[in-house]
Nucleic acid binder design. Structure first.
Lengths: 116, 116
DNA sequence: CTAACAGATAGACATTTATCTATATGTCTA
DNA sequence: TAGACATATAGATAAATGTCTATCTGTTAG
């Protein structure tokens, strides 16, 4: 599979504060000051986290007057779920390349879990 | 949502080499020496990465003679996909707690993406 | 029993990262 | 135009992390 975009997404998500930000934004667009009310850290720290999320392609920013509006990118939601399913699926994309390795067993079971 | 197990999983996955190990194991059980052939780093480094994956609940180890057999935990596959869907879903579990915030819009669209 | 092999542990080191304070930039309002 | 407000940037620092070499433990085979 292609790790080029998936790994940066995982890195950006692998921080409890940023994960909570994503959770907040899964609700919809929020400005920085609204997000900040949910945390104990400082405003520059939030600014840093938002930059990380943007660079990972998770969030977009739109300036409206004084406010910076942050939105979860639909493309991220789609890509992250697809990449995750592809990673954990034991299917034709198995790294053994031909699906014939001794380890390519229990495919049906794994697929059940992933597609349901 | 509950970040207690999800964040450590994300942390463990957010390294390109460990992600490749997970990809390899999504094929099925492998011993350490087999995994090592796919990488440039040293044996102690692999040992370190496998420990991280175990502590995150992603992988189980079983010693068979000299060999350590590593397997992707089915519970991880299930939990990680569920947590991911719950995080990215814009549903009743929205952090606003009552689904009534101004931002709770476009729910139908997001849900389409996640459940299909 | 000894040597070879698989893997784990210890400790060091360079890099990354999450955070802070101080300050700068940009925007609105009185 | 001045001041208040929202956000970004700069620079510092402590902690975490990925990697290495050296060494240790445990298992198998001769």
């Amino acid at each position: 599979m292609d790790y080029q975009s998936y790994v940066p997404m995982l890195k950006a998500m692998a921080d409890p504060n940023r994960l909570k930000i994503i959770d907040l934004l899964s609700c919809g667009t929020l400005c920085a000051c609204d997000i900040l009310t949910h945390f104990e850290f400082s405003q520059p720290t939030l600014s840093h986290h938002m930059k990380v999320l943007q660079q990972a392609g998770i969030v977009t920013a739109q300036k409206v007057g004084k406010w910076q509006h942050y939105t979860l990118k639909p493309a991220f939601v789609i890509a992250f779920l697809q990449d995750t399913k592809q990673l954990l699926a034991n299917d034709a994309d198995c790294i053994c390349h031909d699906g014939s390795c001794d380890n390519c067993q229990d495919q049906a079971t794994r697929k059940d879990v992933i597609t349901k």
